[in-house]
Amino acid sequence: MGFALLLTEVEIAWGAKILGVRVWPSEDYTRITLESDTPLPITQQILTNPDRLVVDVQGLELNSTLKDLVAKVKPNDPYIAQVRVGQFQPGVVRLVFDLKEPIKPQLFTLDPAGEYNYRMVFDLYPT
């Protein structure tokens, strides 16, 4: 019985799942959306030389849906050169957006609405 209780606590702690990833580039900005079954805390930092946006997503393990984000960024995106996704620490996934120019990110979370679950939205605007 103790083993079952332990397994349940681990599943609660690390049970969040990414359900979908989307990328919408435009001339004015690029929007990246991560859809999850629960709200997830994120931290971000901007690095320069070269320009990068680093986002850490807490309470998450790397899965194939997150890895799909890499293929969704196309060469003609005006702001993102490429994206890298990896398991930074247990329970923390790191997204690194290599940028074509300096950006001013706006990151926010949307609650479930209609057919969508929780969404983390990254809007990347030029500076």
Rank of each mutant, 00 (worst) to 15 (best):
L66P: 12
V73I: 15
I80W: 04
K72T: 09
Q89N: 09
V54L: 12
G20Y: 08
E35D: 07
Q58D: 14
T38W: 07
G91H: 06
E9P: 01
D98N: 09
L69Y: 09
V23T: 13
G91Y: 03
E61W: 04
L40F: 05
N63P: 08
P75I: 00
V70T: 15
I103Y: 03
R52N: 11
G91W: 05
W14H: 12
N63F: 00
Q87L: 12
T127E: 15
D111W: 00
S64M: 05
T30G: 11
K17D: 04
E115Y: 02
D51G: 06
D68T: 11
L5Q: 13
F97Q: 07
I80R: 06
F122A: 12
D68M: 08
P41Q: 12
V70M: 06
K67I: 13
A113W: 01
E27R: 14
D123Y: 04
R94V: 06
L19G: 06
K100Y: 05
M120C: 01
G91P: 12
T8C: 02
E27C: 02
I42A: 12
F122D: 05
L47S: 14
T8M: 03
R84Q: 13
R22M: 07
Q87Y: 05
G114Q: 10
T43R: 14
Y125H: 15
T48I: 10
N63C: 10
D37F: 00
T65R: 11
K74L: 11
L95F: 11
D51V: 07
L5D: 13
P105W: 00
V10L: 03
I46H: 08
D98M: 00
D98K: 01
I80T: 12
K74I: 10
W24V: 15
Q58G: 03
P112I: 00
G2F: 02
N63M: 00
Q106G: 01
